[in-house]
Structure formats: C-alpha cells, structure tokens
Amino acid sequence: MAPPVLAVSGLNVRFHTNDGVLTAVNDLSFELGEGECLGIVGESGSGKSQTFMAALGLLADNGEAGGSVRFRGQEILNAPRKVLDGIRGNRISMIFQDALSALTPTMRIGNQMTELLARHRRLGRNEARARAIEALEGVRIPDAAARFSSYPFELSGGMRQRAMIALATLCGPEVIIADEPTTALDVTVQSQVLRLLDGLRQRTRTSIVLITHDLAVVAGLCSRVMIMYGGRVVETGPVREIFRNPRHPYTQALLRSMPSMTTDPGTDLPAIPGQPPDLENLPPGCPFADRCEHVFERCLEQMPSLVPVGDRHSKACHLEPGP
C-alpha cells in the first residue's frame, strides 16, 4: 500500500476556558490515502473541525494540541509558522462552511486568487490572472472573467462557495479539507457543489476530507467514514459497511433517527434520548454511555478502544460481539 498522505496519531486538543479545561479531541488516530475521500461525521462539539484546525495550526489562542500529525512524512503539528505557511493554502487547503466570512470582504475575488499564486507559485501578474480565471471556469462560474473582479458580497451563496473551491484548488493542493462545505447551501445547489468536489478528486487525485454533520452527504461522495462523538472516534470503516452494517450503537441510533424519503411518517422517529456530552466534564468511560440503550457497567468506567470488527472496519464499544 502506498504511504498515506496525512497520518494523524494520538492527537489531543484541549482548550483552557474560564470554566476549566475542555477536551475537544481525545487520542485520535487515522490515515488519509492518496486520492481518497474520507468523511468525518459528528455533531457540534464532536471535535471533527478542531482536529484539522489543530493540524494546520489554526487553533484559537487558548487551545493546545498534542500528538502527531504527519503530512507526507513530515511532522506538521505545532510546526513553526514558516513551515505551515508553505503548506497551508498551497499543499493542504481548506473550504469553510461560510464562504462570506472566509473570503476577505474588501478584496476582489481575483486579487485574492492572484495573491495566493504570487506567494506560493511566484507567478507573474498576467499568468496568475489567466490561471485564476481558468480556476473559476473550472468550478463552472459563468462569465469568469467578469467575476474575477467581483467582491465576495456581490456573489450568491452557491457562487461564493464555488469561488472558494476555486481558491482552494488554485495551487493544486494534495489535500482539501472541506468543513461543512454545503451546510449553508440550498439543496439544489448542494448537489452541484458536491459533484464539483467529486469531479475534482477523480481528475487530480487530490485527497479530500469531508467534515459534516450530515450522514447523507457522506453517502454520495466518500469511500470511507469516521464517526466521531465527544472528541473520539467511535466507528470507522468503508462507507457501505457503515451504512449497511453499522456496529457502534451511536451510529446505529443516528442512522435510525434520521428521517429519510423512505421513513414511514405514521410512526415516531426512534430519537436518541439525552443531550450531547459536556466536553468540560467528560465521563471516564464511553462518552456515549449515558445515551446508549446497551449501556452496562464497564461502559461507565472504562473508555473502549478502537478494535477491528471487519475489513478496515473498527468500532470503539465494549459490547461483544456487538449489537
């Protein structure tokens, strides 16, 4: 097997808040292969975004990260700014949920793009401009030459998101981290953006990490999924396995509780009881224990570790052989 593009092992992220220490990510390990699309699914506070914020040195000032994140064999966690500047936006780029606040509001779209090219690729003005317009055309923005000199607020939501994808792919990154890229978009535009990302991955062999709270988004795009809860990975495996044969009680409950086009509206949804975990006060055992229908004594005392349950499929649950 080819060496992974990105290898995370034993990652911990903590925040020091006024009310104490908050654990956002707890002992996280995974690998991302070349040209792979990895889906990371979790609710707010599951640590899915902070994982990559930490990896790219973008944590808030009160955050600290420990463990190891290797990009093509090179350690980048807590690396000096100079190293990260050569990687961020160049070899690893990010796409955010809210394009309006992620793009600089006072700069024309085109200038934001050429600036990036000037910094990472040392291109001349005309050449950079041509590359930028090409990238805008690549994400199917109509009349790209005109849009080149638009400000972000002049574009519609879907167009802005596509402009951000163009910006993210400009330097031909090896990894794209898409953090809820379609959450703020309407359904009809959402599928356009997802298809764009998928086409990109097939064309350029770029690895994509798709961070989302929506299992359905992952189903269409990713080959492998990682389900996170309370800062930990609870289950990981090939997307088909996870949907067909989920092994962790949280994944099972989550899949059951989502209304789909085939749910019978006559019956109540099997909702997961309780509230999401309190990150300032995580239990010593499994973070899902107090909402789990299969909970037993050991779950409350000891955190289960990730064990294989099938081909590339693992879960972190004490229940044997599994529910």
Binding site: E43, D214, L254, S257, M258, P259, A271, I272
Partner: peptide, 10 residues
C-alpha cells in the same frame, strides 16, 4: 444536531 432533531420533531 442530527441526534436532537428527531427528539424535537417527535
């Protein structure tokens, strides 16, 4: 959150 949506719908 997804896991809460079902509770409120119900």
């Amino acid at each position: 959150d997804v896991s809460i949506q079902a509770q409120i719908c119900n």
